[in-house]
Design a binder for these strands. Structure first.
Lengths: 187, 187
DNA sequence: TCTTACATACACCGAACTGTGTACGTAACG
DNA sequence: CGTTACGTACACAGTTCGGTGTATGTAAGA
C-alpha cells in the first residue's frame, strides 16, 4: 500500500469518511460553498468513489441531514430520569458548542422545497414538534399540540438568531418556554 | 431609439431597475442561485451598466438589504393610532404575502459574518429589537429589554419556520407574544 | 451646440462547479 | 487460487459563475 502510485490510499470505509467530511464542511462553510472536489480531498477519497456511493451531491446532502440526528434529540426526550416538564425545558439547554440547526440552513441554502434535503428538513421539524407535543401531553398540558408547536417555534427562533447575530439566544428562548409551560399546565 | 443595434434600450433609471430586479429574484430564487446575467436580463440593463453602479455582486446584495426596509417596520412602530401594547402585537400581523425575512436568508446564504450584507443583517435585527424594546418601555413593561429581545426572537422563529415548513407560523408567534406581554406589564 | 454622464452591445476571461470515462490497483472471501 | 466488490488516479466534458475590455450610442443640461 505504501509504494507505487497509490501512496494516499485509505482503503475501505470511504462512505463514512465522506459523510464525516460532509458534517464538517457543510457546517463550517455551508452546502453551496463546499465543492465536491474539496469534500473528497478532506475525506481522502477519490471523486469517483464518492459518485459511486452517491449519485449526486443532492443525494449526499440529503443523507448528511438524515445522519445528523436520526433519533430526534434522544439525549433530551429519551431521558427517564427527568419529568416530562423537565424534558421540555431540557430541549433548550444546548451543549454550547452546537453549530446550529443544519435543517434551517439546508432549506434556505437549497431554496427548493422539492429537494430531498428540504423535504427531510420539514420531516425533522415536524418530528421535533411531535416529540415536544408528546412530552407536553405527558406533562399534563391542556393543549399539548399548541404547546409543542410553540416550543418548536422558540427553538427555531433561537437557532435563527444565534446564526444571524452570533449571540447566544437559547437562554432567552428557555425563559419564554418556562413561562409558556407554566401557563399551559394547570396547577 | 427604435432602429439600429439599440432596439432594447431602456434609458435612464438603470439603477432602480437593477434594485427592483434584485428584490424580485433574490426573494424568489435566493441570492446564490441568481446570476448577474439573469439579473441584468430581468432588469433590462446591460451587464456593463450594472457593474458601473455596483463594483461587485456583494455590494449589490448589501444595497438590496439596505433598501428592503430602511425605516425598520414603520408601518408598525410609527402608527400613532395604536397604543404601545397594540403596536407590539401589530408586529406579528404580517400582510400574508410577505416573502419573509431576507436578512436571515442573506446571513445563511452568504455564510460569511464579515460580508457587508451579513453585517447589515445584524444591524437590522438589532434595530428591530430596539424598536420593540422602546415600545415595551412605553407600554410599561417592567423589563423592556427582555421583552423586546423575546418578541424579536418570536419574529425570527416564525420567519424560520414559515420558510422551512411553508406553514404560517406568525399566528402561533402572536399567541406567545400576547402571553409574554401580559406577563411583562403589571396590571 | 457642445460637453458630459449615462447606458448599450457583445465578446471574452479565468475560475469554479457537478459529473463522467477509463484503466488500474487491492483487499476480502469463497 | 480466483472472483468480486471496493477504491484509486487523472483527465476532461459541459456549464455557470463573477467580472472586464472596448467601442459605441444617446440624452440631459450648461
Amino acid at each position: 500500500m505504501e509504494k507505487g502510485p497509490l501512496g494516499r490510499r485509505r482503503g475501505r470505509g470511504a462512505l463514512e469518511r465522506i459523510l464525516s467530511a460532509s458534517q464538517q464542511l457543510f457546517r463550517d462553510q455551508g452546502i453551496n460553498r463546499t465543492g465536491m472536489d474539496q469534500l473528497c480531498a478532506v475525506a481522502q477519497v477519490s471523486k469517483r468513489t464518492a459518485y459511486q456511493h452517491f449519485t449526486s451531491k443532492d443525494e449526499l446532502v440529503a443523507e448528511y441531514l438524515r445522519r445528523f440526528d436520526p433519533g430526534v434529540m434522544p439525549e433530551v426526550f429519551d431521558r427517564t430520569d427527568l419529568t416530562p416538564r423537565e424534558r421540555l425545558l431540557a430541549a433548550f439547554e444546548i451543549p454550547a458548542s452546537t453549530p446550529l440547526c443544519p435543517y434551517i440552513a439546508a432549506a434556505v441554502e437549497l431554496h427548493d422545497p422539492q429537494h430531498p434535503a428540504s423535504q427531510y428538513a420539514r420531516d425533522y421539524k415536524i418530528a421535533i414538534a411531535a416529540r415536544l407535543t408528546e412530552a407536553a401531553r405527558e406533562a399534563g398540558a391542556t393543549n399539548p399540540e399548541q404547546l409543542g408547536e410553540q416550543l418548536a417555534l422558540l427553538i427555531d427562533g433561537a437557532s435563527a438568531r444565534t446564526r444571524v447575530l452570533n449571540s447566544e439566544s437559547f437562554p432567552t428562548a428557555a425563559a419564554i418556554a418556562a413561562v409558556l409551560i407554566d401557563n399551559a399546565i394547570p396547577a
